[in-house]
Design a protein around this nucleic acid. Structure first.
Length: 448
DNA sequence: TCTGGGGTCCTAGGACCC
DNA sequence: TCTGGGGTCCTAGGACCC
């Protein structure tokens, strides 16, 4: 039986999220910036039309944006994460098997539409429902393999159609000829060059290669890609998320700093966040990797310090991880440099269940049961009452809490001016409210 | 002045083992 | 002079994804 895969993805997702809560932006070009207001990571169609490129550093186009009345946003991952969850929930409701592939994309098993007389109507219904229930526009690609579904999705976007299907083999050559090779899933910059040197320009050229030859001259990954383009399904739908082996939290700082304490505080904050992420997947880290670095765009006085700190046994508790991070920091810190970025990575994460077994011999090195309970309690409280409700002393005093307090404290005029963010905190000058995840940010609707 | 963050997989080559 | 054949594990580097 031929399978029927769908790939649904949200159009200009971050920009669309902002628009849902500010309908007045409907016709205006909208862009969303990366962390620290660094680069452009999302553009509404109008912004694309203005020629704003993906990944463009914002400082280069700041004036251009003002001239063209572009609405600029700092990224608000709370909002996007919550909107994403809503979209995925709807998909799960309407489709039996869903693989959440990224924050704005999901693969769907649409094989259940096999006997439907009019699958196109079902595609439209799906897109329409997501739009009605969340306000987010999407596009759908359909094909007998994941790679073809991806390709179909690209084609839909290119033609501004709500969906595109590559299920019928007869129409495939013509459609795949429309798709430049670089738009094929799995073909990045390097492979574009290699394949064009061989005379492949479009997805169709790629589909006509001999898989065995591709295996010999490239890798199994490219071989699978060709097979998938030929309609031979190699990749399956993964409905269960695979636990991460490494978890990283790193940030560029809002300003450079040479202050040892500030850098240490940044690392502690990142360590705590990484540990929370890890416990969410019931993991325990075997080692901790710590790094600090000066501005990579500045040639002089460069320094990049990094160290991996092994842990005796896999550990999940924040306290222990903080200790390892602090030890690592002591090793790599050099005074006299202006630091611009830091990061913490938890390495070789094992499932917690195999490590939490109480054993006499290694008990001292494992998470102790009372530590595990403490972490569970803190995580639960922070999930319920907001991140940083309970935090460690080595972290900074929760920036968002302080921000809230400033907002609540409007009677005390002075409290605003004392809003001094630490140097390492990302700048986010254009952040929208967390409309859906914070009570104080709830949007108000006015009746006419 | 200002340039993001977080992942995965594959391969080749070396070390080491029997 | 001759000097096997495999296997595993680890790491670095390269490529890709969103």
């Amino acid at each position: 039986m031929t399978r029927r895969f769908g790939l649904i993805d949200c159009n200009s997702f971050y920009a669309s999220c902002e628009r849902v809560f500010q309908p007045s932006l409907a016709q205006r070009p909208v862009i969303v910036l990366s962390n620290n207001d660094g680069c452009v990571v999302a553009r509404s169609p109008e912004a694309k039309q203005l020629g704003i490129r993906m990944g463009e550093p914002f400082f280069k186009i700041r004036h251009f944006c003002r001239r063209h009345d572009v609405a600029v946003f700092s990224s608000n991952y709370r909002l996007y994460g919550d909107m994403s969850r809503r979209v995925m929930q709807i998909l799960t409701l309407l489709v039996p098997r869903v693989e959440v592939y990224s924050i704005d994309e999901a693969f769907l098993d649409l094989s259940f539409l096999e006997k439907t007389a009019d699958p196109d109507a079902s595609y439209l219904k799906l897109i329409d429902t997501v739009h009605k229930w969340t306000g987010i526009p999407t596009a759908l690609g359909v094909g007998p393999t994941k790679t073809l579904a991806k390709a179909a999705n690209r084609l839909a976007k290119m033609t501004e159609a709500p969906f595109c299907s590559l299920m019928a083999p007869a129409t495939r050559p013509e459609r795949l000829r429309q798709l430049p090779i670089g738009d094929v899933w799995g073909i990045g910059r390097r492979l574009v060059k290699k394949f064009t040197d061989l005379g492949c320009q479009t997805a169709w050229d790629l589909a006509r290669l001999d898989p065995a030859w591709v295996r010999r001259n490239f890798t199994v990954v490219q071989q699978q890609l060709v097979l998938e383009l030929q309609g031979d399904s190699c990749l399956t739908l993964e409905t269960e998320p695979t636990p991460r082996k490494n978890i990283q939290v790193s940030r560029s700082f809002g300003r450079k700093t040479s202050d040892r304490n500030e850098v240490a505080q940044a690392l502690a904050t990142f360590a705590v966040r990484a540990a929370v992420k890890m416990r969410r997947q019931q993991g325990a880290a075997s080692a901790v990797y710590v790094y600090i670095a000066t501005d990579r765009f500045q040639k002089e006085h460069q320094y990049h310090g990094a160290v991996a700190v092994p842990l005796d046994t896999p550990i999940s508790s924040t306290g222990r991880i903080l200790r390892a991070v602090t030890a690592g920091f002591r090793q790599i810190y050099r005074p006299g440099y202006w630091y611009k970025k830091a990061g913490v990575m938890l390495l070789d994460i094992k499932p917690m269940s195999t490590t939490a077994v109480p054993g006499y011999l290694f008990e001292l090195n494992h998470d102790r049961p009372e530590e595990v309970r403490l972490m569970e309690t803190i995580d639960r409280l922070n999930r319920r009452l907001g991140r940083d409700t309970i935090h460690f002393g080595s972290e900074c005093a929760a920036p968002e809490k302080r921000f809230d307090k400033d907002r609540d404290d409007q009677k005390g005029a002075d409290s605003r001016s004392e809003k001094t963010a630490a140097a390492w905190q990302s700048s986010c000058a254009f952040r929208s409210p967390c409309y859906t995840t914070r009570w104080t940010d709830l949007p108000t609707a006015l009746a006419r």
